[in-house]
Amino acid sequence: MSTLQKIDIFDFTLQQGVYKRWLPLYYQVFGQLIGTAPVVVVNHALTGNSQVIGQNGWWNDLIGENKTIDAGFYTIIAFNIPGNGFDGQAENLIQNYKEYTAKDIARLFWEGLHSLKIAQLFAVIGGSLGGGIAWEMAFLQPKNIQHLIPVASDWKASDWLIANVLVQDKILNNSENPVYDARLHAMLLYRTPQSLKAKFNRSKNDNQELYQIESWLLHHGQKLENRFALESYKLMNHLLKTIGESTNCGQFLAFAKETSAEIHLISVDSDYFFTADENRETYEILKRVNSKVHYSEIQSIHGHDAFLIEFEQLNQILKNTFTTTKLKTKQA
């Protein structure tokens, strides 16, 4: 298992002009040693962390030895968003969570990569918030990423997403059990009515006191409350609405013309969070000015969480990008 490592970032000024004398950036490296193989950066989602594979690895079905993103061939780097609490530093780092933006996190990730003497990336991939940060990384360094792969995400926060971030923020700041209660609401955004019907179908627990859907929601609220700090949740939720905040449509088109990255948009047809409609619109805009843009759609009843469930489809979508490149390199 990869150990948690740290890079100290000094004299960092946030987008809002707030100066940070020091920020610790924690990360893990999997697969090949840095400097010996193509680098894949994996960005975690809202309540995720850098443990992408191994025990409690949240993308074990996609990444690992002889998997689609093969740890036997690639160097895989995953940074923790500062303040996500995986390093136990949440309360110490976050005095005002609204100071930070997704672009700040992208800048920190690039700072970390430069500290590791990495300038060029084979791929940046991330789901949900991690996909938004991947977009921001590409905006900052449009010629230093070969493959940009945002999954169940988009280059900007939609009005729908911003509205739900506000609801989450109100719960987190006003509830007596903020993390617990906010998670109940969030889980309904990550799934769909069809997904919940297929899973529970109005059944009750053995004691008949609660519907199984109620027990399931309460379990997820308790589970997150036990492992995630309130300040961390406030920050991660806030970051969602800042995706693309400093990039207008004209700048987005300029990026699309300038970038050397091959862009792989992957949406979920039933996503209530980053909707497929928004991704299709992004694809239509991009393909007018960039021929290296691909659009794929995961078919699922499970909504936003399908990027953590429908691994067979996701592997099939990504297989050509990662496996073909690996085979070509070995043959050469």
Rank of each mutant, 00 (worst) to 15 (best):
E281P: 01
I9T: 15
S260R: 15
E111R: 10
S267I: 04
D271H: 07
I118Y: 06
F228S: 00
I285G: 09
D305P: 01
D87V: 06
E278C: 00
R202C: 05
S267G: 12
I298L: 12
T321P: 11
S300Y: 03
G250R: 00
K319P: 00
R227D: 03
H220I: 04
I162D: 01
P178R: 04
Q208N: 13
Y26G: 06
Q212H: 11
R21N: 15
L33D: 09
G112A: 14
F122N: 10
A78C: 05
L25D: 12
E209D: 06
N49W: 06
S115C: 13
H44Q: 08
L189C: 07
P142L: 10
W155A: 07
L121H: 14
P193M: 02
T3F: 07
K103S: 03
L217E: 03
N84W: 03
V179S: 07
I301D: 15
L33I: 01
Y295V: 10
N177V: 04
F252Y: 12
A229W: 00
P178V: 04
I298C: 03
S2N: 12
N237W: 08
M1H: 11
H185A: 13
A157P: 00
F139P: 01
E111W: 09
H264A: 04
E284H: 09
N205R: 03
G250Q: 06
Y283F: 15
G88I: 06
G303V: 05
T75G: 04
S267P: 07
H264T: 15
Y27R: 13
V293H: 10
T192L: 06
